[in-house]
């Protein structure tokens, strides 16, 4: 596969060139650190931050979208067009999350056209992490700070230059578009990359992840959930900043016979999440709702998709207003599993 380097002084030019025929999303500075945002001016792109405060799932799975509009008994389809899109500087955990979302939105052969129209037009250039963020644990959940899953190309920050490696045909085609700005990677560059990768992986603190699914199932009635549930405020922050949470609600918004059907993010932490039309709610307590969040990620998803739906980005940890830490929860669950 194609391996090249780009002098960092040319990054803006590189992005301007690639952004000519597509929408460009990249991290930019924000009051909360950095945010993944559509950029018209590449000089705003900031590659020095670690994880953006919000994940990039918004690009392929927007917080809300109109599925169709209606007028009395007439439904009007929304045109499913999407523009070519480049996600530049996504961290490997976020790129991997896209691969997990792909599995949900194509599950059992049922394709979600609203998701796929954007996803199919999306090219991801991931930027490997040299140092972990404050709550990172990607390597404990099957990822890596230099991981390639979900990305079309992977970049390394080597100080004066970016090293770029194409991972897919789409990534290779993209990098070739800017070949006037790049140089072929030397053996020295490749060695530097290997060293950076080893350094990055070394810095991460391992978190024990409970992998015994039968034991996790047993934890359903464990006291730990009551303990955690009483702290949980029941907001949707963890789910909304999570790159793999994908639950949504569908609502009709009508005004005098004219309306639209809207799909919007939802969170299992909300008390209304499972409220039935009858008034019955099978998850009556915050403990049950918090349990759902953790078990969905670490028990039901492994059962359904063969992998836990957590990429270890740590956003739920840094943003939880109640100071809940998923890593500590997993550790407690693991020790519970050993006892039972």
């Amino acid at each position: 596969m194609l391996e090249m380097t780009l002098d960092k002084s040319k990054v803006q030019e590189f992005l301007r060139l690639l952004g000519q025929n597509r929408r460009l999303f990249a991290p930019v500075k924000d009051r909360m650190g950095t945010k993944f945002s559509e950029v018209a001016d590449p000089s705003l792109v900031c590659l020095d931050g670690l994880n953006t405060n919000l994940s990039l799932k918004e690009v392929v799975f927007p917080q809300w979208e109109t599925l169709y509009t209606f007028e009395e008994d007439q439904a009007n389809e929304v045109k499913l067009a999407a523009q070519e899109t480049l996600l530049f500087g996504a961290r490997p955990c976020d790129a991997r999350a896209l691969e997990l979302l792909d599995r949900v939105f194509t599950w059992e052969g049922i394709d979600d056209p609203y998701y796929l129209r954007r996803r199919e037009k999306t090219c991801v250039v991931a930027l490997a992490c040299n140092t972990p963020g404050e709550a990172c644990f990607c390597s404990s959940v099957g990822g890596s700070p230099v991981g390639e899953v979900g990305a079309d190309a992977l970049a390394f920050d080597l100080g004066k230059q970016l090293y770029l490696r194409a991972l897919t045909e789409r990534g290779e085609a993209l990098l070739k578009e800017a070949s006037t700005l790049t140089e072929k990677a030397t053996e020295e560059d490749k060695q530097a990359v290997q060293q950076a990768a080893a350094e990055a992986e070394k810095q991460l603190q391992p978190v024990p992840i409970p992998e015994d699914l039968a034991a996790l199932k047993e934890s359903f009635d464990a006291e730990i959930w009551e303990d955690l549930g009483q702290k949980c405020l029941g907001c949707g922050t963890c789910a909304y900043v999570c790159p793999t949470c994908h639950c949504f609600d569908i609502t009709d918004e009508t005004k005098k016979g004219v309306g639209r059907r809207v799909r919007s993010w939802d969170s299992c932490a909300f008390s209304l999440f499972t409220l039935h039309g009858s008034g019955h709610n099978p998850r009556t307590t915050q403990a049950a709702r918090y349990r759902q969040r953790v078990l969905h990620k670490f028990l039901y998803c492994p059962e359904n998709f063969g992998e836990a739906f957590c990429v270890g980005c740590g956003r739920c940890i840094t943003n939880c207003p109640a100071g809940l830490d998923l890593r500590a929860v997993l550790e407690r669950l693991g020790s519970l599993a050993k006892v039972t």
């Binding site: 949707g236 922050t237 207003p321």
Partner: peptide
């Protein structure tokens, strides 16, 4: 982002 953290806190 309509997470309602303000309300819940």
């Amino acid at each position: 982002i309509r997470c309602y953290a303000c309300r819940q806190a």
